[in-house]
Structure formats: structure tokens, C-alpha cells
Amino acid sequence: MKPLFYLSLLALSSFAFANSPLPNHRHIAITGYGETSVKPDIAILHLSVEHTDKKSAEAKAEVDKRFNALLKGLKKFDIKESDIVASRIATSPRYEYSQQQRKQLHVGYSANRTIKVTVNDLNLLSDVMDLALSVEVNQIQHLEMASSKEEELQQKAVELAIENAKSNGAALANAFGASIGKVYSIDAQNHEQIRHYSNMEKMGNARMISADMGSVSPGTYLQDELTFKATINVVFDIKSKS
């Protein structure tokens, strides 16, 4: 059954290279996979502040007030200005549909601003979220987990993919009484990062709901793993064993 398995592997490898130029001489096309995982050590909060008022200036002033309160509070956690990114305030007319008059009525102006805060110490994450809610940030839109070693981990995944391609190529060639020779071509463009943090998002939303109810309780945030993946397509020359 072993030869059949290797023939199937060869067929799959050839399919992966269907759109790539292949040499006319004897060769073997191999796809190598690499994967490495790590616990996140950085949290990125995507926040939204919004307010509607009768006048555009008043709506903007309220959003400014909440944003400034957030900045002031973040200083207590030694979060640098470089770790805070905020969009410009956007204002727009606010309309609501009147069932009685059967038309849209102008009810005021809405002002909003989005803010991204990078928390480099996960021990502070709960307190930073509490601060955001206390200054009336309307929504924690998204909680993104990351790693300070992202480039190193992605490179490690690529290295593992290379070793996997070499190992698979050597094993497949050996099964047919041959060995791999020089590399004809390499395609290592397929990199992927998978962020497993759905549980953290759910907990963040739950805290916001409890805050609205006036019953915020401290919680522990689950640190799911980040997975870095790499795929490398390699074409080796094949040479007969002497």
C-alpha cells in the first residue's frame, strides 16, 4: 500500500503546481507545510465613541469629552501615545422615520470617533476595558490578540515548511529508488496567521452588557493561541541512486 500512498501524494503535489512552470526533465513537485503557535502577549482594543445631539458642535464636544477622559485614564497604565490611534471626529445629520408623518425627520447630529488602543501588558486588559466603559465609550467593537514576536514566529513557520518539503521530497523520491537533486523553483508566498480569540470577544461583550446593567464584575480573559502557518511549493530535480 505504500507505493499507492506515495503516488497519491505525487498527484496532489502536481495539482498544487498546475499553474506553475515545471521543467521538462525528471522532477518532483512538493508542497511543504509549517506551523507554530504561541500565547498572545499583546491586546489591541478597537473602541467607538458616539453621541447624538441637537447641534453638531454639541455632539462633537461630548465625543471630545469622553475621548479626553479616556486618554487621561490610559496615562495611569503607562500606555504610550504611540499605542493609541484615533480617527478624526466625523459628524453627520441624524434622521428618524416618523410613522405619523410617514417621512424622515431631522432629529439632530451624530458625532463619532474610532480609537485603537494597544495594551502591551495583558494583566492590564481588564482594567483598561473597565476604564473605557467608565468614560462611556459606546462600544468595544473588536478585541484583537497579537504577539510581540510575530515576525520571528512567521519566519519559524517558513523554516518548518522548508524542512517539511525537503523531508517529503526525499521520502517520496526514495520510495521510487531515486533521490532529490538541486532545487528547480521555490514559491513561498502563502503565509497565514490564525488568531484564536473568540472566547475573549465573548467575554468582552459580556462585560459590556453587565456594565449597562450596573453590575460589572472582574473577570479572567482566556488567552487562546495564535497560530502562524506557512506553505512552500518546491520543485526538485530527481537523480537516480548510484
Rank of each mutant, 00 (worst) to 15 (best):
I30L: 02
I30V: 10
T31N: 10
G32H: 02
Y33M: 10
Y33Q: 09
T36G: 01
D41Q: 02
D41W: 02
I42Q: 04
A43H: 06
A43T: 03
I44T: 09
L45F: 11
H46K: 11
H46Y: 13
S48R: 02
V49M: 15
V49D: 15
V49W: 04
V49Y: 11
E50T: 11
H51E: 15
H51V: 12
T52N: 06
T52G: 05
T52D: 02
D53S: 09
K54M: 14
K55E: 15
A57T: 10
A57R: 08
A59R: 00
A61H: 04
E62C: 08
E62Y: 00
V63A: 02
D64S: 12
K65T: 12
R66M: 13
R66A: 07
N68L: 11
N68S: 13
N68T: 09
A69R: 07
L70P: 05
L71H: 03
L71N: 09
L71T: 07
L71R: 11
G73V: 02
L74K: 04
L74T: 04
K75H: 08
K76S: 13
F77K: 02
F77Y: 14
D78P: 06
I79K: 01
E81T: 08
E81P: 02
S82Y: 09
D83V: 01
I84C: 07
I84F: 03
V85C: 05
V85L: 11
V85E: 12
A86M: 01
S87K: 00
R88Q: 09
I89P: 03
T91L: 09
T91I: 10
T91Y: 00
S92N: 09
P93E: 04
P93L: 06
P93M: 03
R94C: 08
R94Y: 11
Y95M: 03
E96T: 04
S98C: 01
Q100M: 06
Q100E: 15
Q101L: 14
R102P: 00
K103I: 03
Q104W: 12
H106I: 04
V107K: 01
V107Q: 01
V107A: 01
G108K: 01
G108H: 04
Y109K: 06
Y109G: 09
Y109N: 14
Y109A: 09
Y109I: 00
N112Y: 14
R113A: 08
T114K: 07
T114M: 11
T114E: 15
I115A: 00
I115G: 00
K116T: 15
K116M: 14
K116D: 04
T118N: 05
V119A: 07
N120C: 08
N120T: 13
D121R: 15
D121K: 15
L122A: 07
L122R: 03
L122T: 08
L122G: 12
N123L: 10
N123E: 14
N123R: 10
L124E: 12
L124H: 15
L125Y: 04
S126W: 11
S126A: 15
S126K: 11
D127F: 13
D127C: 07
D127T: 06
D127W: 03
D127M: 10
V128H: 14
V128G: 12
V128S: 12
V128K: 08
M129I: 11
D130R: 06
L131I: 06
A132F: 03
S134T: 09
S134R: 07
S134H: 08
S134Q: 14
